[in-house]
Amino acid sequence: MEQKILQHLSDYLVKEDNQDIFTCTVESKNIIHVMSTLKYNKDLLFKQLTDICAVDYMQYGQAEWTTTDATSTGYSRGVKSQSHGRIKFSNDIEDERMTNRFCIVYHLLSISNNFRIRIKTHIKSDIPSIPSITSIWDAADWYEREAYDLFGISFDGHPDLRRILTDYGFIGHPFRKDFPLIGNTQVRYDPESKKIIYEPVDIEPRVLVPKVIREK
């Protein structure tokens, strides 16, 4: 099956090794062609789109707590959050991590061949956008809306790109790594004005268990 896929799409796919299921990366400009071949080619028939997952690689591999010096200096108790602190949306952080920040991962299933494939696309632009695959699978509609809502990735050609999971009138894209875990606003009933009001969050973000990276 892997051979067949590579045979039909060798110009577009780059195979990734050491993965649990067959995984390939595709450039985002080729995504429509690759996806429609995977779905409609008689040898492949990936008729089902299992899932679309957006990933924000902004803080990949960054630990919050390193312990190399611990024997001489002791552990520091207060851990400064790397990931879910109170940072505002920052378009001014300019490094490679930020321009190559988002990735879309598609999981496809071929029922007739009982075979799964994972397609990854890195988005290489400041304003994250990628062609929509709703024309190929109708199931992509809500998955893409979700990725747009939570990550702010726009899908070109999507017929109805609205927010889906967050509240009406929500500001920001909450699953981005620079969006604080506790959010930006809190809601309460104000007895004076007799309505629900939104105000800035007044609790401090804190790290319960620091993120640690250890080699085996």
């Binding site: 899932d51 990933v55 924000d56 993120k211 990276i213 080699e215």
Partner: peptide, 17 residues
């Protein structure tokens, strides 16, 4: 019901879908 897990080597998932 599927779980897609990305780990960057840490004690927490980097991304869980």
């Amino acid at each position: 019901f599927g779980v897609f897990l990305i780990s960057d080597g840490a004690n927490k998932p980097y991304r869980l879908k």
